[in-house]
C-alpha cells in the first residue's frame, strides 16, 4: 500500500485509487480503417515493463479524476505524477533508476535480502 499524490486532493493511500493500465494509448480514431490485428493490439495488448511504466490512475474513492503517473514497477516507487493534459516527462529523466537490463534493482524489489 504505497501512497499516491492525487494532483487534485493530495497524498492518499493507494487503496483509494484504481489503476487504469498503460498511459498514452490512443484509441484509434477510425477503427474501421485498421486491420483486425491492429485493433486487437489496441484492445488487448499493453506494455508490461519491469521498470519505468507510464500509467493511469483514477482517484475512484475520492475526486474521480484521472491522471498519469510514472512508476518503477520493480520497486513500486512513484517517480512522477502529472495531469492528463500535461506533457509526459521524458524517459531520460528516469533512466538512472534502472539497475539491470531486466530491471531488477539491487534495492526494493523484495527479491534480495543480502547486500552483495
Amino acid at each position: 500500500m504505497f501512497l499516491i499524490n492525487c494532483p487534485y486532493c493530495g497524498e492518499r493511500d493507494q487503496s483509494e485509487f484504481s489503476n487504469g493500465g498503460e498511459a498514452h494509448v490512443k484509441r484509434p480514431e477510425n477503427p474501421d480503417s485498421i486491420s483486425d490485428k491492429e485493433w486487437a493490439e489496441y484492445v488487448f495488448v499493453r506494455s508490461n515493463p519491469k521498470g519505468i511504466f507510464y500509467e493511469r490512475w483514477v482517484h475512484s474513492h475520492g475526486c474521480r479524476k484521472w491522471f498519469n503517473a510514472v512508476r518503477n514497477t520493480s520497486t513500486d516507487e512513484i517517480l512522477k505524477i502529472y495531469k492528463l493534459d500535461e506533457k509526459p516527462p521524458s524517459l531520460d529523466e528516469f533512466k538512472h533508476t534502472l539497475q539491470t537490463p531486466s530491471g531488477e534493482p539491487e534495492l526494493g524489489s523484495g527479491n534480495f535480502t543480502v547486500k552483495k
Binding site: L107, G108, S109, G110, F112, V114
Partner: peptide, 16 residues
C-alpha cells in the same frame, strides 16, 4: 528486511 532494506555480513560480530 521486511522494509526491503539490505543486510550485510559483519565478520567481527559474526552476524548480519
Amino acid at each position: 528486511t521486511q522494509s526491503k532494506g539490505l543486510i550485510k555480513w559483519d565478520s567481527k560480530y559474526l552476524t548480519f
